[in-house]
């Protein structure tokens, strides 16, 4: 080698490593901040959204009831959807062909039609059936009998529509989780004398949870928002209550901002809950443990400076 191209002799301890500079981050941050400021000033100048109206209705009694009802219907429908999903996923993977086909048809039907149509359909049952009754066969004894109009309340229609629809999606998520578990696990459980139900409950499902939880958290966040469709069957959830208010005072945009703030708050809480669940079910695996929310914020803040 030519003497002139040799690097200057520097002791290894004198070298100061400098990470790659990311000037693009500063430029993009400036552009985004500028755009946000411009939009905010435009909105303020137009007077379309009145901050005092928003503040006034944010904690309005009726709106808060709507928030509570949204939570109730979303949690109830999601819980029922998970139960249905586990049931139909197990049926889909069963040896019995009747169960497999039943499960397939359920998913095909409820995933293949819009949830809005399903909601309206349940709510419209009183138009077709006058009575809802459970009757003992052959004798004239009713265990339950009511007029369909009285039975199919807005809550029941919303619950049936959202839960049955969610069950179809959850069935596919749970099925994916179950088949992601190594077959050797089932072999090992069988070889120890565990019967199929025990193997499923103790060995397969706990491992499948790691695959099932992230999309389920996603489904619940989605459910919090999809539950707004229940407004069309007159269930008093957040959007319905919001509409009730702006149909009288005509502050449409202000009230929709109020609803959006509450939806954002609910989904934010739900997504942080997802972190804790994922960490809980990452037991026994060295990698893939999601960092805590705080660690993530800290990392993002420190890396932008580099």
């Amino acid at each position: 080698m030519d003497a002139g191209t040799q690097p200057p002799a520097v002791a290894a301890s004198d070298i100061r490593p400098v990470p790659v500079r990311h000037f693009g981050r500063w430029v993009s941050a400036a552009v985004i901040l500028g755009l946000v400021a411009w939009l905010a000033s435009a909105a303020a100048a137009s007077g379309a959204v009145d901050g005092s109206v928003v503040r006034h209705f944010l904690f309005n009694h009726s709106i808060l009831e709507g928030v509570r009802n949204t939570l109730v219907i979303a949690v109830a429908a999601q819980a029922a959807g998970i139960a249905l999903g586990v049931g139909f996923a197990v049926m889909r993977l069963a040896v019995n062909p009747v169960l497999r086909v039943t499960s397939w048809v359920y998913v095909w039907l409820f995933r293949g039609t819009p949830v809005l149509v399903q909601l309206i359909l349940w709510f419209s049952l009183p138009l077709v059936f006058e009575f809802m009754a459970i009757k003992l066969p052959f004798v004239d004894v009713y265990l339950y009998r009511a007029r369909m109009v009285d039975f199919m309340t807005p809550f029941k229609a919303a619950f049936l529509g959202l839960a049955l629809n969610e069950g179809a999606y959850m069935a596919e998520i749970v099925r994916a989780g179950i088949i992601s578990v190594d077959e050797g696990q089932v072999d090992a459980a069988k070889a120890l004398g565990m019967h199929p139900a025990l193997t499923l409950r103790r060995i397969v499902l706990p491992q499948a949870m790691r695959v099932i939880i992230p999309p389920t958290g996603n489904e619940f966040i989605s459910m919090l928002k999809t539950s707004s469709l229940a407004s069309v069957v007159l269930y008093g959830e957040l959007l319905r209550r919001t509409q009730d208010v702006y149909s009288t005072n005509l502050r449409t945009l202000d009230l929709l901002v109020v609803a959006s703030i509450w939806y954002l708050a609910l989904t934010s809480v739900a997504s942080s809950g997802q972190y804790f669940l994922e960490r809980r079910f990452a037991r026994g695996s060295a990698r893939d443990v999601p960092e805590t929310l705080l660690a993530r914020v800290r990392r993002n803040v420190t890396t932008i400076r580099r």
Partner: peptide
């Protein structure tokens, strides 16, 4: 399953419950 419970088996890939 009852029959298998009296027979131990060890696998090539361990198959411990992770």
């Amino acid at each position: 399953a009852r029959q298998r419970s009296a027979i131990g088996m060890v696998f090539q890939r361990f198959n411990l419950f992770p």
